[in-house]
């Protein structure tokens, strides 16, 4: 219970922050961090089974288009559209996953990459449904219990809630027997299978849960920007998500949070120097891979251990 209270306090402080201390611009960054935390956690699940998915941009996009279209065309309430979009993405992951997940390593990356490109092309070419390269403008704001959430602060709370849900979900998965199975599959698949684990179904389940989170993150992203455009859901989404995990530390879900916290503000702060953004990304990634392979979380753990030892030796 101690650990739950810690998170409740952090969450409460974060929740009231925009109303007291955060200027609007930082509140906006907070919304983006919440969304990307959800997406990075979704990628963390894939990294846990050792299969980097490049389909996650498409999953995010399908969530965004799905939720927006269901509200705009079918007049469904936000909660229904939002959940149906995410569930739809999970269902699609179930279908394609049962084929794709038979394949491992770089071939899986390529396969999911091709899938992602096909989906983005569909967004562009199917103009009557997805609006072409101009995208879908005028995505309606979410509403909860009859209240429309149009304000930045409202989105901030939604985004924070979603990130908290994703974090709790992923942490719970890792903390239970399901997590032990998933970790085992990556550590030694032959041994895990010989102990009676149906590896295909567990990989498929992980893929679906991961896609579900990506769909939710995407859906909220679309409603927040009020415009859903195909280029937002391409190749760079999974690249960013993997980077967030590497920089934050892939061993723990908190690493995905740290990664989002560090990487999301960068493009916003570097708006005037956009051409240097990718260069900076590249340099940061190389430095982390070479010198801090366990990411920021790994660094913090080491520092903590170091301090504890110094404390002891006194």
């Amino acid at each position: 219970m101690k650990f739950v209270w810690k998170y409740v306090v952090i969450l409460a402080l974060l929740a009231v922050a925009p109303f007291f201390v955060l200027p609007p611009f930082l509140t906006h960054i907070g919304v983006m961090i919440g969304i990307y935390t959800t997406l990075a956690l979704s990628m963390n699940l894939m990294l846990r089974i050792g299969q980097i998915s490049f389909a996650h941009g498409a999953f995010m996009g399908l969530g965004a288009y799905g939720s927006a279209l269901m509200m705009m065309r079918l007049d469904l309430p936000f909660t229904v559209a939002f959940l149906a979009a995410a569930l739809g993405v999970a269902l699609l992951a179930l279908l394609v996953g049962s084929l794709f997940l038979r394949i491992r390593g770089v071939y899986f990356v390529l396969l999911t990459f091709a899938f992602g490109e096909i989906i983005v092309l569909t967004f562009i070419e199917w103009v009557s449904l997805f609006g072409g390269s101009g995208g879908l403008p005028g995505v309606p704001p979410p509403s909860l219990f009859g209240y429309a959430i149009g304000s930045r602060e409202g989105f901030y709370l939604l985004s924070l809630g979603l990130a908290a849900f994703a974090f709790a979900l992923v942490r719970t998965i890792y903390g239970t027997e399901l997590g032990a199975v998933i970790t085992s599959l990556d550590e030694d698949e032959a041994l895990t299978r010989s102990l009676g684990i149906d590896s295909r179904r567990y990989r498929l389940l992980t893929f679906c849960v991961s896609a579900f989170l990506a769909g939710m993150g995407g859906a909220l992203y679309g409603h927040y920007l009020t415009l859903v455009t195909p280029e937002d859901y391409g190749f760079w989404v999974p690249v960013n998500l993997v980077m967030m995990n590497v920089i934050g530390g892939i061993a723990q879900p908190i690493g995905a949070v740290l990664g989002a916290l560090l990487l999301v503000p960068l493009p916003e702060l570097l708006r005037d120097a956009k051409q240097y953004q990718m260069l900076l990304y590249g340099i940061v990634l190389i430095l982390f891979l070479l010198f801090m392979p366990d990411g920021m979380h790994g660094l913090f753990s080491k520092l903590k251990g170091h301090l504890a030892r110094r404390e002891l030796s006194r």
């Binding site: 085992s184 550590e187 684990i197």
Partner: peptide, 21 residues
Amino acid sequence: TVFKNETVYENIRRGSMFGCI
């Protein structure tokens, strides 16, 4: 062939547990 990053205890525990799930 063991789960190299886990304790001996956890290795044996998984051996027992995985049969049920």
